[in-house]
Each structure stands twice: as C-alpha cells, then as structure tokens.
C-alpha cells in the first residue's frame, strides 16, 4: 500500500557557508512538514524566507546541514526518486539553442522513454501548452511566457506523481496565470500531488489546499487555507435581489441581536476577473469596443 505522505521533512536545516567554512546565512531552521498525496501544498513567504531552499533540498539540489528530506520515503539525494517527480524551476532554465521538440525529446530521453512513447508524449504536451505553431523555433526566440510554458511541459514529460513548482506564475500575463492555475487544479484532479512556492498570495489562495508560511527560515504557520483564512467572529451574508427596505430590516435585526454591522453594499469583482472577461469578449467579437462595467452601470 502506498504511503499517504509524499514529501516529508524532519528538522530540516540549511546553513550556507563561505569558502572557509564560516557560516554566512542560516537559510532554514528545523523545518518539519508533510505533503500528502493528491493535495496542492503551498510554501509562502517573503523573499529570503527559505522557500526555494526548501524546494532545492527536497529535490536534492542542495544537501541539508542537518535533518532529513524524504520524497516518496526515499532520501532526497536518491536519484531514482526523480522518476516520479516533475520540476518547474523559478525561471525556466532550459537550453536556449534547442527548439521545443528537441527540448522535450531530450528530457524524455533522460527518463529512458522509448522513442514511440516519447514522440507521442512530446506531441501531446506541445499541443497542451499551445506551442504547436512554434515547436521548431529555438527557445532563444521565445517570449518569457512561451519559455515558461515549455518549461511546464518538460516538468510533465514523465507524467509525474509529484509536481514541484517554484514560483509558477512568475513572468506570466493574466491569461497565462489563469491557465497555469487551471492546470494546477487539473493536475490535482488527476490525482497528482503539487508542491509549489510563491510570494503571490492571491495565486496561492486560489489553488492551494494547504499552506506553510515561512519567515527567515522558520515555519510560522501551517494548515488548510480555508481554515487559516476564516475569521471566526465575523459573519458574512451574501444575497442577490434585496430591496432597500429589506436591507434596512437586516440592519435592524443585527442591532437587535447586539451585532455590529461592519459593511453593507455592493461587492467588487477582482481585476483579474475583469481583465479575463474583456479578453474573452474581445475574442468573441473582434473589432468591437468592450463596454466597461461603469458604462454598463450607467445604462
């Protein structure tokens, strides 16, 4: 039976030293965490908080000063664990002199994939990331978003069980960001485990099931996103089609029950949703100016 824990760190610490062995930075201090099968786990924190160090320790790119990092129950420095991992680094560190097809073929060969399987997989992934039209162009001619997409494709070449994403939405435009988030959710729905780190709080909130917040190398908080974000002493009621009279009555009910009304009004949408709506309408009706929300309200 497979273990429920995919990634586990036990008192994981990392100290960066200089050439003479003197301590430079204590990047991570006795981190204990578990990432469970099928969840999206987010590592949150400001720059220098130890998120990327944690990811690199888990991938075996760095060696721990003390403690342990286990992936699928194996030590993080064990090579065979990588057969079940896909990794998208912070910036897509790919060979710029290769084209998209060559890039995916190369990484496919590193997984010892037979030629026929590899070809099919490469074609599927190129289509999935929408780069079919540019698959024979060298990556040095790609835009940042295109490189990011091919980077994601290489991370999925082996159909991994664990996908490690380092700042997955960095450098993407709003559409790309939305696509990336949709893809993360889709991967989770396919049963894959996602470990991601980001300092873009909205992205993490949108997709993560559980998060850990790091600050100066220490774990400050860990748990389910909805549980961590819920404000226990505030009640939120959202209703549509209420008249002004009904709203007044609601206020009175709150007062009668010794409650304190914090706000009552029309909610605002997010800028991301507005942007996506405009793009969507523009694609449906090319050439027509999209009516903004304010204009619509005037009507």
């Amino acid at each position: 039976m497979q273990s429920d824990v995919v990634v586990e760190t036990q008192s994981l610490s990392k100290v960066y030293r200089d050439f003479w062995g003197r301590q430079k930075v204590r990047a991570l201090k006795a981190l204990d965490l578990e990432v469970r099968r099928g969840e999206i786990f987010g590592l949150l924190g400001p720059n220098g908080s130890g998120k990327t160090t944690t990811i690199k320790l888990i991938l075996g790119l760095l060696f721990p000063t003390s403690g342990k990092a286990l992936v699928f129950g194996k030590d993080a420095t064990e090579v065979t664990k990588n057969e079940r991992i896909g990794y998208l680094p912070e910036e897509s560190y790919l060979y710029r002199f290769l084209n998209a097809e060559e890039t995916l073929n190369f990484y496919g060969r590193l997984f010892n994939m037979p030629r026929a399987v590899r070809r099919q997989r490469v074609a599927d992934l190129i289509e999935m990331v929408g780069l079919d039209w540019a698959k024979r162009r060298q990556l040095k001619e790609y835009s940042k978003g295109m490189v990011r997409r091919i980077g994601l494709a290489q991370a999925l070449i082996n159909d991994p069980e664990l996908v490690v994403l380092d700042e997955p939405t960095t450098g993407l435009d709003p559409i790309g960001t939305r696509d990336m988030k949709d893809l993360i959710l889709k991967l989770r729905d396919e049963g894959k485990t996602i470990l991601m780190c980001s300092h873009l709080l909205a992205d993490v909130q949108d997709v993560c099931d559980r998060i850990a917040i790091l600050y100066q190398g220490e774990l400050k908080e860990m748990g389910r996103v909805d549980a961590l974000l819920s404000v226990r002493d505030v009640t939120e009621v959202r209703a549509a089609g209420l008249s002004a009279l009904a709203q007044e009555e609601l206020k009175q009910v709150i007062e009668r029950n010794n409650g304190h009304l914090l706000n009552m009004g029309n909610p605002t949408t997010t800028l991301e949703e507005l942007f996506l709506k405009i793009i969507h309408e523009s694609e449906e009706h090319p050439g027509r100016r999209v009516r903004g929300v304010q204009e619509a309200q005037k009507d």
Binding site: L61, V79, T80, N82, E83, Y87, P89, Y93, N112, G151
Partner: peptide, 9 residues
Amino acid sequence: TLHTVVTKP
C-alpha cells in the same frame, strides 16, 4: 540549466 537535468533520474 543543470537544475532541470539533475532533477531527472
């Protein structure tokens, strides 16, 4: 670029 190589098996 070696990061994407050594994180493969």
